[in-house]
Design a protein around this nucleic acid. Structure first.
Lengths: 356, 356
DNA sequence: GATTAGCAGTCGGCTCGCTCAAGTGCTAAC
DNA sequence: GTTAGCACTTGAGCGAGCCGACTGCTAATC
């Protein structure tokens, strides 16, 4: 109900109250129960009486950092409270026990399969943060064609396979004018590779608009198709892997209340993937807390995510979603570590500069 | 508690009781409420009194086809009751309204991407049956190599790309003895294609065991890797797409009771995919009802699924999962139709016989 | 002015007992 | 074999009442 009267970034709180707020948030994250002044006095060495804590908490409530389920109940952090906690404690790095080992065991570089990496990463992350984890495969901001193949299927149908520089493969059925043998198709593909290898979708469009045909009727017909396939605008290119919904639903907020279905519906539509569209710079971990989200369906939850991949190259997103009462410190540390780890792998898959 | 005293396949039931059981199951599927003798007499033209229905229902309970939540409640079908219903009514074809159109709108053949087909199919199926839908991509029982590519990455690392005949792409990082230029790698790939194009994993193993090297040290080194990549045993090859968990959780059985978390955990591990391992023959729709399942986690649910793809070729599985009180007729019809539809698409992608 | 002790007041959660409606099981008649 | 009638069982819903936890306030103290 009451909004913070001061900008949460520069709260008008004395040191003791800041420390108190941090303790309240961290205690609530741990116990999931409204924290009372007596408990605070008992469990932490605050050197003040419960009455003083009550006064401070009244102030924190006034400023919108905490709220109460009902009049005679303890305090529960509200979104600005979590935000304060994240800004203040976000620097700390607190990885789950054996997290690095678990990551290294689960993700096999030699597999050379960004999809497999993403799938494993989601699984490790989910079990580390005990919430839902999402990882997407990588996609180039500007995709470049690496190699083109044409595979004869039957009659006048063939399969056009375009391998992109980020090792993604896209394909489409093409209908030929006549039944063309594989030999001839291979020649056409070789020709195409020489012509357009390394080109981006924009460059292909320029070439296409100029009416260039390469002197071959099949090539001319294929140019536009290749451009569409390589187009950065292409939807759903990033495969997404989810894991740990069970972990998330085991959180106490889902035990009572019908919210499990809502959570499941968030997965069925693309809310989570959409929030990833506005992906942060590499090495930055972004935290969206409850009502801060632009997407209405995501308002009851918090999302912690980061971009991974090569700078100006192929990038994907990895993150976790849970109730606003999530362990932000642990989540941010885990996401940061995994994003860095995956980035190394992806960069090792990148073509070396002279091959661009 | 009480098991059926007779084999459900040949139930010792007179015609009226068979008809009654079918009505009870179908009514319960529709209303999700225990069905009482009075309601049956009122809503259906049974031409007998509620008392007679009660006698018949007592018999059905005795034989294990239905059970009661408590002494003074109506009847609820038990697993054998559903089984009876499926066997008896399974022949009927009752597709949801506009289902064919929705399928055709959602699935685009020209995309030539079995993964995209599977994803769309899962989405359409989920919204048609109002339950969870799962579709996997296709995989060949016996995979054959179609084409091999080697792409230089940097220094002494290269990417080995193996395109299989079912248009699946597998890849792996390889470490070379020396920094080998792309030209040379391409030559090696061409050589390899001539040698092993069209071979299955078993044939590759034979060739490898015979010590054949092709006269080239790189080729010799790659043979085993290719064999591994093409191996039919390779796990997780079938990508799986889920949709409609929200639909499923909106079913009344999940409104009260903590079972939503259990359902989510079924998705996190691979229970559903494992049940697909024993996939039925094409054109057969398999129904696993509750306790019939070998997988303990799946016992509270029913699964309806079918194999799609080309006979002796690339196959995938599509199916739906929900509470045992699911609309079997509608689910079986929808799965059957979608499996047939997808089969057509996949077969059109298959190489023509002379190219095997 | 900040802090503290003491105490009245509030509220959710729990249990208990009650009523009510739905539906069965049984018996006897048809 | 079928039906009418009736006593009995049971879960769901409701309200009262109690208990424990915690706060807000006031007045005393540092």
């Amino acid at each position: 109900m009451s909004e913070p009267t001061a900008n949460p970034a520069t709260p008008a709180l004395n040191t003791r109250r800041q420390a108190l707020l941090e303790i309240i948030v961290s205690d609530y994250i741990e116990t999931a129960a409204p924290v009372s002044s007596q408990q605070l006095a008992r469990r932490y060495e605050l050197r003040v009486s419960p009455a003083t804590i009550r006064n401070d908490m009244a102030e924190l409530e006034e400023m919108g950092y905490i709220s109460r389920p009902h009049t005679s109940a303890g305090g529960v952090p509200s979104d600005p409270g979590y935000r304060f906690y994240v800004e203040r404690a976000g620097q700390r790095n607190r990885l789950p026990r054996h997290f690095q080992e678990r990551v290294r065991d689960a993700i096999d570089f030699d597999e050379a399969d960004p999809a497999a990496w993403a799938r494993s990463a989601a699984r490790v992350l989910a079990s580390a943060v005990h919430n839902l984890a999402i990882a997407t495969t990588v996609k180039r901001a500007v995709a470049r064609v690496k190699q083109v193949q044409i595979v004869h299927l039957h009659d006048r149908e063939a399969l056009l396979v375009v391998v992109m520089q980020d090792a993604q493969v896209r394909q489409r059925i093409i209908h030929l004018d006549s039944d063309t043998p594989q030999d001839e198709l291979t020649q056409v593909a070789n020709r195409l590779n020489q012509l357009i290898g390394g080109m981006s979708a924009a460059e292909l469009r320029t070439l296409w608009d100029s009416g260039f045909s390469g002197g071959n009727i099949i090539i001319a017909a294929l140019m536009e198709t290749i451009r569409i396939l390589s187009d950065e605008e292409r939807k759903e290119t990033r495969e997404r892997y989810l894991n740990g919904l069970g972990h998330m639903l085991s959180q106490p907020e889902f035990q009572s209340g019908r919210s499990a279905q809502d959570a499941a519906e968030v997965l069925d539509d693309d809310s989570i993937t959409r929030i990833f569209d506005d992906s942060p710079r590499p090495a930055e971990v972004r935290v969206v807390i409850g009502q801060e989200s632009h997407d209405e369906h995501l308002r009851p939850y918090s999302v912690v995510y980061a971009t991974y991949g090569a700078p100006d190259g192929a990038t994907g997103v990895i993150g976790t979603m849970g109730p606003t009462r999530m362990d932000y410190t642990r989540s941010m540390s885990s996401v940061r570590y995994l994003a860095a780890f995956l980035s190394e792998l992806v960069q090792a898959l990148e073509p070396s500069p002279q091959w661009q």
